[in-house]
Design a protein around this nucleic acid. Structure first.
Length: 498
RNA sequence: GGCUCGAUGGUCAAGCGGCUAAGACGUCGCCCUUUCACGGCGAAAUCUCGGGUUCGAUUCCCGAUCGAGCUACCA
């Protein structure tokens, strides 16, 4: 590719960053970065009613969290293209100018049909088994007649919208970056569509064209759900005599259970970046996993950094079929990342203990090394997100359970149990403070096995029970070594006292 | 309903006319081990179905089936 690539991610600030949108952002970013192009963020906020207060901020924050940066955006304006919010552009009259142009040339017209009329028309069409379509109200009228009709509607106080006069029986086709040749006839788009709403705002399909043109966007990579918007956009480019960008429509990410497009309204699927962030998924892992959905690299590896993705990116390797979102694989990817970035993740893991109320901030700061050891032993290597460490480490490292009656009967009140417990207690008390290491403790237990001729669970369970009040858990000698002699002796005394 | 697109194990997927059809997640089994994880080894499991084209189709073409998207004064 010779031309300078400019791509964009254009979210509407209606909520948090959705997985599907994150994917669009990721691939556009990759596209730009791979070819040394520019990545732009534009806020498409023309639906005033749906905009949420911190929607834009949330989108941007989460993008940043994922490691995506942008060359231009609402917070990083290039005066040649600014502003980057459509409401601001509308306020400057950016769209009005082009709407007026279309109005003047007759390629668009003011329409006064009411919501009620529209509804009636659609119902009648449904009755007649016709596809819903807009019926041109000025068919066969002269310019004068149209003018009169509009003046009359205006006088009655009817609000108007501006509709684009769709060319009849015209094929719109394009070479889709991922799908190949796509062709849609103008008669399939449902008739003259609205380009300016009654509130004066341009509609998405119109504004997107004006802005992509003005911002010199060269490639539009977006979800498959935009395929049917493309002909509408193409006819606007054509009306102005502009060159359209290249389009690429990526297959969608669908819900595993239903096979349907992920819907923001679904509450039972975790589908916002924010949610994974809160659970303790790493941005590297999210990027990694999402980057492999609907796209694949050449080799067999599955774990990649953003840098590697940048280098590998190839717009010819998109998958055409929709991809189901597999949370289990995401978990595995995150686990891989946590393990390879353990140093980096450790503070976050420690913070999880604070969040769970097991320690306070002060302890987190002062005992970082000790806590890191606990976290390691408790089993970080087996968890899929940082938030899972707290329940794993809670017992016996921060709290002790009561020993159940059954455990007491099975492991402590037996002859073997008493022998083992007594002998271990004696030996562990005799162990010097600086000898209180995992290998020495293990040696004591091995000696006991030899001396008492008891092995397996009858040997280990009594010891585990008196020292940790659990009958299972991570490697016992390591637990004791990390927690120390005082802790161990105290726990034993607690057991015996009861 | 119409239009557009898609179809390789349960899932993500490689493949691009000739292969015992990669790899990964998951599942199952075995090993390691006091237990739980981790780890190691191994196994089961796939080309939607018909027609063509071809010496030969997972691969190319057509049709069927199934699936998805769209069908707003939402983006």
């Amino acid at each position: 590719m010779i031309e300078k690539i400019r791509v964009r991610y254009a979210p509407s600030p209606t909520g948090h960053l959705h997985i599907g949108n994150a994917r669009t952002a990721i691939f556009n970013w990759l596209f730009a970065r791979h070819y040394n192009g520019q990545f732009i963020i534009r806020i498409e906020d023309t639906d005033l009613a749906r905009n949420v207060k911190d929607g834009e901020k949330s989108q941007l924050d989460n993008l940043q969290w994922l490691g995506i940066d942008w060359d231009e955006g609402p917070d990083k304006a290039n005066s040649k293209y600014a502003p980057y919010r459509q409401t601001e552009r509308a306020a400057q009259g950016v769209y009005q100018k082009y709407i007026d142009e279309l109005l003047a040339s007759g390629k668009a017209y003011k329409s006064y049909k009411t919501e009620a009329t529209l509804k009636e028309e659609r119902e009648a069409q449904a009755q007649a088994h016709q596809a819903p379509h807009y019926v041109y109200e000025y068919a066969g009228m002269t310019k004068e007649q149209i003018k009169d009709a509009q003046a009359k509607d205006e006088a009655v106080g009817l609000k108007s919208v501006v509709r684009f006069r769709v060319p009849e029986n015209h094929d719109y086709q394009w070479q889709d970056l991922v799908k190949g040749e796509v062709k849609i006839n103008s008669k399939e788009i449902g008739g003259d569509w609205v380009i300016q709403k009654a509130d004066g705002m341009p509609t998405y399909n119109f504004a997107v064209v004006i802005d992509d043109h003005l911002m010199e966007i060269t490639h539009v990579l977006r979800g498959d759900d935009h395929v049917s918007n493309t002909p509408k956009q193409l006819m606007v480019y054509e009306a102005f005599g502009w060159k359209a960008p290249a389009f690429g429509h990526m297959a969608l990410i669908i819900k595993a259970e239903t096979g349907k497009k992920l819907s923001k309204r679904d509450e039972d699927t975790l589908q916002f970046i924010e949610q994974y962030r809160e659970l303790g998924y790493l941005p590297e892992a999210m990027f990694n996993f999402i980057g492999l959905l609907g796209w694949s690299p050449v080799g067999e590896n599955e774990i990649f950094t953003r840098e590697q993705f940048k280098e590998m990116f190839d717009e010819n390797r998109f998958t055409k079929a929709n991809a189901k979102f597999d949370a289990k694989k995401l978990a595995w990817v995150n686990n891989q990342w946590m393990r390879s970035e353990k140093e980096k993740v450790m503070p976050q893991l420690i913070h999880e203990l604070v969040k769970a109320g097991l320690i306070n901030d002060q302890q987190a700061k002062n005992d970082a090394d000790h806590l890191a050891k606990i976290i390691e032993i408790a089993g970080v290597d087996g968890i899929k997100a940082t938030s899972e460490i707290a329940p794993l480490a809670e017992y016996p490292f921060f709290k002790l359970h009561d020993i159940s009656k059954e455990d007491r009967q099975s492991w402590l009140e037996t002859d073997d149990g008493q022998k083992v417990a007594a002998a271990f207690t004696e030996k562990i008390k005799a162990l010097a403070e600086d000898e209180f290491k995992a290998d020495h403790i293990l040696q004591i237990i091995r000696d006991l096995q030899h001396d008492l001729q008891i092995k397996g669970r009858p040997l280990w369970n009594p010891i585990r029970l008196i020292t940790t009040h659990e009958v299972q858990g991570p490697n016992l000698p390591e637990i004791l070594a990390v927690m120390g002699k005082d802790w161990t002796i105290k726990n034993i005394q607690l057991t015996v006292a009861v």
